[in-house]
Design a protein around this nucleic acid. Structure first.
Length: 565
RNA sequence: GUACCCGUAGCUCAGCUGGAUAGAGCGUCUGGCUACGGACCAGAAGGUCGUAGGUUCGAAUCCUAUCGGGUACGCCA
């Protein structure tokens, strides 16, 4: 039963409004003393030409016969509805327990496909902290949309195009060693890069060689391609270990180079629509009308650019996957780029350009300055994860040394802590990486929530009463239980909002909210007690429902829920 | 210079399409394990919601201006 709908329908009858219009007027009060659903009557006072408090009084009478509410109260121009707690508790808990991990799912996405472009690792470069946000946000959105019934396509848009790969071949040919690369992977490739740039200072002619090698890659010269593919293989093998640790898999690893032969149609279309104009030797699309600098499509030498490739990729994805939306999870530094190429596609007549979404996020920097590969200030993602894992392990040794599968649990907790910290705040916020806060396991953190889950599990295991059978929900007639049940029931809407706003942090925060309310309840009330089996059952159902929703929520943001820790 | 983003407690942040008394966590101080897991719970202290106008019955939320911080602005990605 949807209480808001019931109220909205009745209100529509009385005030003669559309039902969605009256639904929008309803809100959830800030304080539970003011009821569960509130109708502010201020706007009605204009059309009804009466004082809000009088309208509220009158509506109170009109709502008298509506069932499902234990009390309806008129207060200071608000009409406050108090839902029948017993019925609500029964409905919410039985629903969660019956649906299990399906609770919160939806069919809104059936038959729709969403492409998610995230993580975008560069060939021959390691994953560092700068990749954390895109990787975990993208993965969370993937999980969330799948949960809502969408078909998701996860794409790792590899950075595998550019002269840099020519330089890498030069470096490898001159100073490289097959075994060293096989053995040390990306670290060795990075060493070769650095060596190259050192040498280039005194031997500028190396740059010509690099350009030549890159040209060979583009021309699909077999020797060049073989080396390049090998570098890619080495890179993927290594980064996949980190992805595995995070529990992430991609459907496609189609990088920039994949689109090199797919750009002509884009250029042709821009020519046909007369959007492409020559400017200082380059070909651009002017965007002055839209308060943006021109979007460069072709360089003076005729070579394509970032925007050109991204447009080719968008076209390809539209044709291949027929997406209803295509999300790009990249940092806000690229805001302009996305606004530009979305606009160019729109001007070129691709009406689906409005389905392209730049899911931007803030930058990660180190405490002692900004993140820079050259200055060696990057924290590698795998190092951060390993450190968190060690910390989790230490805590387990200290608090629960007899725990089984310690390594597994330490992985879930340690990795969870890092993922959680990246999904706790709104995407747009910049993050200053600090070991202290990343390795903090108390308060609003993954371990806190996981601990709550383990606690609920523990109680459930301890009890011998089955969840099936008559339950006496009067055992849950207290503020703490009511607050928890409300929070659990809000989960569905939270998931939908998180999807609508591309904001996984909404889920993260709600999980914390549920955990806090459970812990409060747990502290104030016994779950297993010496009263009737029916009362015990009601309280156990509350614990079971909490366990379920926390687990589902954590899963959506890519975090596991250990039963013990 | 232009465009966009951010500004809420000492710190890190919530606050949905404007609604009643602005909320968490961390840190500080204090208290709580003889019953289901103390990675927990409770209490205290801490606020001109950057500033100034405006719209409104009502503004942290919308508009304008302004200050502070950030990002991006043609042949890199």
């Amino acid at each position: 039963m949807d209480y808001k709908k019931v109220i909205a329908e009745k209100l529509s009858q009385i005030a003669g409004m559309e039902s969605n219009e009256s639904l929008e007027m309803l809100e959830t009060p800030q304080y539970s003393e003011m009821g569960d659903i509130a109708l502010p009557c201020f706007k009605l006072s204009r059309t009804m030409r009466k004082a809000p408090n009088i309208i509220a009084d009158e509506l109170k009478e009109a709502f008298k016969d509506v069932s499902g509410f234990s009390k309806i109260e008129s207060l200071k121009g608000y009409l406050n509805f108090y839902v029948d707690k017993l019925a609500f508790a029964k409905q919410t808990l039985t629903e969660i327990i019956e649906l299990g991990d399906k609770y919160g799912t939806s069919e809104e996405g059936l038959g729709k496909t969403i492409c998610i472009d995230y993580s975008s690792v560069n060939v021959a470069k390691p994953l560092h902290m700068g990749h954390l946000s895109t990787t975990v946000i993208g993965h969370a959105l993937y999980q969330i949309y799948e949960f809502l019934g969408y078909n998701c396509v996860g794409i790792n848009h590899l950075g595998d195009y550019g002269t840099q790969f020519g330089t890498l071949i030069v470096a490898y040919e001159k100073w490289g060693d097959k075994d060293a690369v096989e053995k040390n992977g990306i670290a060795e490739l990075t060493r070769l890069y650095v060596k190259y740039y050192d040498e280039e200072e005194s031997h500028p002619e190396l740059a010509d060689e690099a350009r030549l090698w890159f040209k060979k890659i583009e021309d699909k010269d077999s020797e060049a391609l073989e080396l390049f593919n090998w570098f890619q293989e080495i890179t993927l093998k290594e980064v996949n270990q980190t992805y595995a640790l995070l529990g992430i898999e991609f459907d496609y690893y189609t990088g920039e180079s994949f689109y090199t032969d797919k750009m002509q149609p884009v250029v042709d279309r821009l020519e046909e629509t007369k959007l492409l104009v020559k400017d200082q030797g380059a070909k651009v699309v002017r965007l002055d009308e839209y308060d943006m600098p021109p979007c460069i499509i072709l360089r003076q030498d005729g070579a394509s650019l970032y925007a050109t490739r991204d447009m080719a990729a968008a076209l390809y994805r539209k044709q291949t996957f027929e997406f209803t939306q295509c999300l790009y999870v990249t940092a806000y530094q690229q805001d302009l780029h996305f606004r530009q190429f979305f606009k160019v596609l729109e001007l070129a007549g691709y009406e689906w350009s409005q389905d392209l979404v730049h899911v931007n996020y803030g930058m990660v920097s180190m405490e002692d300055g900004s993140m820079s590969t050259r200055k060696g200030r990057v924290a590698l993602l795998k190092e951060v994860l390993n450190k968190a894992l060690e910390k989790a392990n230490d805590i387990i040794e200290e608090k629960n040394p007899d725990l089984e599968n310690k390594e597994d649990i330490a992985r879930m907790v340690g990795v969870g802590a890092i993922v959680f910290s990246a999904l706790k705040n709104n995407r747009i916020k910049d993050i200053v990486f600090s070991w202290d806060s990343a390795l903090n396991f108390e308060g609003e953190t993954a371990p806190y929530v996981q601990y709550t889950h383990a606690r609920a599990t523990s109680v459930l295991e301890k009890s011998e009463i089955s969840l099936i059978g008559e339950a006496d929900y009067t055992a849950l007639e207290n503020e703490d239980a009511a607050a928890l049940i409300t929070s659990l029931s809000e989960f569905r809407e939270i998931v939908k909002s998180a999807a609508r706003r591309y904001e996984p942090s909404m889920i993260t925060r709600h999980i914390v909210d549920m955990a806090q309310k459970f812990n409060k309840y747990y502290f104030e009330h016994r779950i297993i007690d010496n009263d009737s089996a029916e009362k015990n059952r009601a309280r156990l159902m509350l614990a079971a429902a909490t366990k379920q929703v926390i687990k589902t929520g954590l899963n959506l943001i890519g975090i596991e829920s250990p039963n013990k820790m």
